[in-house]
Design a protein around this nucleic acid. Sequence first.
RNA 1: GGCGUGUUGGUCAAUCGGUUAAGACGCCUCCCUUUCACGGAGGAAUGACGGGUUCGACUCCCGUACAUGCUACCA
Length: 507
Amino acid sequence: MEKRVRVRFAPSPTGGLHLGGVRTVLYNYLYARAHGGDFVLRIEDTDQTRFVKGAEEYILDCLKWCGLMPDESPVVGGPYAPYRQSERKEMYREYAMQLVGQGHAYFAFDTPEELEEMRRVLKTDEHSSVQYDHNTRKRMRNSLTLSADEVNDLLNNGTPHVIRIMVPENETIVFNDMIRGSIMFESNLVDDKVLLKADGMPTYHLAVVVDDYLMKITHAFRGEEWLPSAPVHLLLWQYLGWIADMPQWAHLPLILKPDGNGKLSKRDGDRLGFPVFAMNWYDPAKDETTMGFREMGFLPEAFVNMLAMLGWNSGEEKEIYSLDELIGKFSIERVHKGGAKFDFEKAKWFNNQYIQLTDNEKLADMVMPYITAQGQNPSKELLVKVVALVKDRCTLLPDFWAQGSFFFVTPETVDETLIRDAKWSENKELFFAAWTDKLNELADWTDVAIEQSAIDLLPSFSLKKGDIMLPLRIMLVGGKFGPGVYHIAELIGKAETIKRIKNIIKG
RNA sequence: GGCGUGUUGGUCAAUCGGUUAAGACGCCUCCCUUUCACGGAGGAAUGACGGGUUCGACUCCCGUACAUGCUACCA
C-alpha cells in the first residue's frame, strides 16, 4: 500500500515571507491536495540569535491570506506535535548521541577561535575555504583525536562542545531529485557538519532529518540552495536506519532578480519599487516596514497564480488558473530546473486579469477601504457601479481611487487650459450655459437622456458632438481619462454635474 | 579556489530527434473609442559557444564560456 502523502513547509521565523517562500508553500500545498495528503507547517526556530518575535504569527497570516493553510501547525496542532523545533529540543540530542555511539558522529571541542585559526592557517590559493572534514578533523580537538578519558573529563567539566557527523571517505553519494534526476557527490568533498550546537539545539541538518522522519514526511520540496547539503542529509537517513522512509526530494529553482543576476532579495524590491514579501513586514529591530504584495493592492488569487507560473508551466496556453485548477494540473516533474527572473510587470498583469474576473459586488468590498481611507463614504450601491465602470483600467486595488475619485468628490484641480484651448469659443461657453438650464429640467437622469439633451441643443449653436465631448469630460473629471462622460454624469447626479460645469464657465 | 546546479526572444516559457521554434508579459504600428483604458489586427525579437552522435539536433553526448547556489555552532 502506498504511504499517505505528507509534505511540509519549514521556515525559520526570522523575517518577512519572501516570494520564493510562498511559492515553496504553494508547490507543497498543491502536491498535498492533489494526492489527498497532509500539508504540515513546521517552524524551524533553532537559531536563537536570529529569532524574531512575531515572525511566526506573520507567516501564518501570510498563508491565510494566500489561502494556503496547513493541516498541521504549531497553532492547530496535529498528531506529531510539537511543530516548533525549539520545543522538540530534547529529541535531537538523543539521536545525535545514537550517532556518536554508532561511530557516525563525534564530539568536537574546538572553540570558534580555534576553528578560525585552522581555516586561516590551512587556507591556500587553491583552497580558499577550508572545511572541517576527513582531513582536518585529525588535527582538531575532538573525540577522534582525544583519548576517551580526556573526552570524558571535558564532558564532565561541562566544556562547550558540538556533535559533528563523521562523513565517510571515498564513497559516492547518489540520490534522486524529482526535478533534476540523479545527483552525485563524492563524500571526500563533504564536510563534517555540526549536528548539535553547543547550546544543545540541533542544526538544520539534524533537525530536518529527525523531524521529517518523525512526522512521516514523504516528499520534501525546498529551495535549490539546499542541494549542496543534501548528501549530509542522505547520510543521516542512512545512519539513523531510516533510509527506507526517506522522503523523495525536489529542489526548487530560485527566483532571481529582474535585472542583473542573483537571487531576488528584499533590497531589490526596495531598489526597483516592488514588493518581495507577501504582506507588509514590520521589523522591530530596525523599526521599519517593508511593503508587501497584499498592501500594494494584489488579490491573493492573482498573487498565487502568478507565483505558480514562475518556474512551472502546465504545457497549455492557459495562464489563469484558480487554486483548484492548479491542484488538478500541477506536477512536480514539470517544475523547471533553471531559476526564473521575477517580472513585476507580468505580476501586475495577473492582478489586472483577476480584477476583471472578480464580480463587482466582491470587488466593491475590497475597494471600499481604499475609498474610506480618502475620507469618502459612498454607498455600496454607488461603489459597485463605479467599480463596474473603471475596473478594466485598474491593475492594483489603489488604482480604483486614482481612476474613480471624481465620482465621489469634485476634482480639486481642473486644467482649464485643456478646455480653453485653440478650439474653445464664446459660442461653446454659451452652449454650456444654456445646456445646464436644460439639464436642470431633465426628468429622466440617465446617460442616454443626458446625451440626447446635448444632441438636441447642439445645432442651435452650430456645434457638433465632438466639439463638446472633451471640454465636458475635463469639467467633470478634471483630466483626459475615465469612462464615458455621460455615464459619469449619470452617476455623479444632476446637481453635481451642473455644478461642475458652472464652476468652469461662470468666469 | 572547490563542489553542485543551470543556460530557447528583454522577461515568463512550449517543444520531450524531423515544426515556418507555440503562447504570454513588455515594446512598436494600425483599427475601435471625439478622453484614458479594454478589445481587435499586425510587427520587431530566441535555441551561449565549439566539437561530436545521427539521414536529420534546440532536443542526446563531450568540452568551453557564462550564470547561479553552497563552501557557518544560519536556515
